[in-house]
């Protein structure tokens, strides 16, 4: 392939120069190409980062809504925490996963006469993935609490898959999104309102995981909030495991 043959169709003249096959050696070319490929492979990002959209309430609004929502029996409060060693580095388990802990309570915290929280209200959970499509950990709690919405969404998803909204792919998606948003806000479905509060030592991963759980469990009413006094007192009470 790499040689160019020069045939002289049998007419051999005396004194004519002997023609050698021209042979081009491509080995250095391949070497160079491989080097370049290696360079491009190392310098590229094939996996692009994903994003998680978040809307924080404006600072003024927080206090007003706080009062409204905390009074509701729909509320679940998640207190995020991460175990850290003396140097402030997060502790990891055998798999190298960070030890993120979620303390949670439903509704309003129970207070005693002095205004201190009653011990033993906080329950402990962890961020665990699904196992055989069965939710575990905090996801199971949220799934359970939001099962009405999830059931409705599952129906819509089935319709979406069968393209029942519209035959057009984009239109189908748009109508599905619209319908799903409606379901998430439908009053009679008894959806929870989740308050996510991170302790100062909670890892960024735990915050992202908590926000992620919200979208996995189709919860559209949630807020990222600051710890208040009662929450800190409750955390000090060393919840039972």
């Amino acid at each position: 392939m790499a040689q160019i043959e020069q045939s002289d169709k049998g007419k051999k003249k005396k004194g004519a120069q002997k023609k050698m096959p021209i042979h081009v050696d491509f080995t250095p070319m391949v070497d160079m190409n491989m080097l370049l490929i290696t360079f491009f492979m190392l310098c590229t990002t094939m996996l692009k980062s994903q994003t998680l959209k978040i809307v924080l309430p404006t600072n003024e609004k927080v206090q007003k809504e706080n009062k409204q929502q905390a009074s509701s029996d729909k509320a679940i409060t998640l207190l995020l925490d991460t175990e850290r060693d003396d140097n402030g580095n997060p502790k990891v388990d055998a798999d190298g996963k960070m030890k993120n802990i979620i303390y949670y309570y439903m509704g309003q915290p129970e207070l005693d006469a002095a205004g201190n929280p009653v011990p033993g209200q906080l329950q402990t959970e962890a961020f665990l993935g699904n196992e055989n499509n069965v939710p575990r950990g905090i996801r199971q709690i949220l799934y359970d609490r939001n099962k009405n919405v999830l059931a409705e969404i599952a129906k819509l998803k089935e319709q979406w898959r069968n393209k029942e909204f519209s035959q057009d792919k984009d239109e189908n998606q748009r109508l599905y999104d619209e319908a799903a948003a409606k379901v998430r806000n439908q009053e009679d479905l008894n959806w929870p309102i989740v308050m996510i509060k991170a302790t100062p030592q909670a890892s960024w991963e735990s915050v992202i995981s908590a926000l992620d759980e919200m979208s996995i469990s189709e919860i559209s009413h949630y807020q990222l909030e600051n710890l208040n006094h009662v929450d800190s007192l409750m955390l000090n009470l060393k919840p039972q495991n």
Binding site: Q50, K53, I54, L56, G129
Partner: peptide
């Protein structure tokens, strides 16, 4: 107050 947080991708089982 509207922004995105950068994450890497994982599956629901993780």
């Amino acid at each position: 107050n509207k922004f995105t947080l950068m994450t890497a991708l994982k599956s629901q089982d993780q």
